Computed example of a mutant assay.
Amino acid sequence: MLDRDDIRRLIPHRPPMLLVDGVSELVPRSRLVGSYTVTGTRPLPAVLLLESWGQAALVLIRHDRPMPTVLTDGVPIAGAFEGIRFGRPVLPGETVEHRVELIRLIADTGFVRGESVVGTEVVMQVGRLVGAVRPAAALRPAVLAGVSDAKEST
């Protein structure tokens, strides 16, 4: 249904940090099934498995409102993850399937849950993710304040 080029038109992630290869099912404002095949010689780190699932969630939340560029379209922010459970590592050559369900969408804030599977085996469960999109300009003062705070403490 959606390939990597389609996904790149929807979200701002780019290789090597684009961690969704395709979407096989998309029911607007309801659910999505996406996938990512692990390359390289090492298992996919848990934090990247979660990032990959989060990118699939972002495709679901933003499929009708593309945001390919953070400077003009906004910055996606994962505000809170709850109920994360990891199973076994995802190994090189394996394809992980992300299943995402939209709980609620309020303006640019989405509430989603789901799981990731390899074959029939659950490798990660997500009880809830709260994600939002904020204008890049609104985040600059906070980022710059953090930089000046770090300089003062050294």
Results as ranks from 00 to 15, higher is better:
59 V>Q: 02
41 T>D: 12
128 R>E: 13
124 M>I: 00
104 R>Q: 08
99 R>L: 13
130 V>S: 10
56 A>E: 15
85 R>M: 15
55 Q>K: 04
77 I>C: 14
114 G>Y: 00
49 L>S: 10
73 D>I: 00
46 A>K: 13
40 G>N: 06
112 V>W: 07
96 V>H: 08
39 T>P: 10
42 R>E: 13
52 S>T: 00
124 M>L: 10
127 G>I: 01
118 V>L: 04
115 E>Q: 11
32 L>P: 14
118 V>F: 02
127 G>M: 03
82 E>W: 02
94 E>K: 00
95 T>L: 01
114 G>I: 01
72 T>D: 08
100 V>G: 07
127 G>R: 02
51 E>P: 00
109 T>D: 03
106 I>D: 12
21 D>R: 01
85 R>N: 15
127 G>E: 02
41 T>I: 13
83 G>C: 02
21 D>H: 00
45 P>T: 07
69 T>M: 11
108 D>C: 06
118 V>H: 02
67 M>L: 08
42 R>M: 11
23 V>R: 00
67 M>W: 02
72 T>F: 14
39 T>L: 08
132 A>H: 09
107 A>M: 10
132 A>M: 11
23 V>T: 00
125 Q>H: 10
125 Q>G: 10
31 R>D: 05
75 V>Y: 04
120 T>N: 09
21 D>K: 01
70 V>S: 13
73 D>P: 12
25 E>M: 10
51 E>H: 05
31 R>T: 06
122 V>A: 15
87 G>I: 05
122 V>L: 07
57 A>R: 08
91 L>V: 14
82 E>S: 11
90 V>A: 10
58 L>D: 04
104 R>I: 04
39 T>W: 15
67 M>K: 05
74 G>F: 14
48 L>Q: 15
52 S>E: 01
129 L>E: 10
127 G>P: 01
42 R>H: 08
87 G>F: 00
82 E>I: 00
126 V>F: 04
61 I>E: 12
121 E>C: 06
89 P>R: 03
53 W>D: 09
82 E>H: 09
107 A>E: 12
126 V>H: 02
113 R>L: 11
28 P>W: 01
120 T>G: 13
117 V>D: 03
73 D>F: 00
102 L>K: 01
129 L>K: 04
25 E>H: 03
28 P>Q: 06
126 V>A: 11
31 R>Q: 05
37 T>A: 11
55 Q>I: 07
83 G>K: 05
95 T>H: 06
34 G>E: 05
81 F>D: 07
35 S>C: 07
96 V>Y: 11
94 E>Y: 04
29 R>N: 07
76 P>G: 15
32 L>M: 09
81 F>R: 03
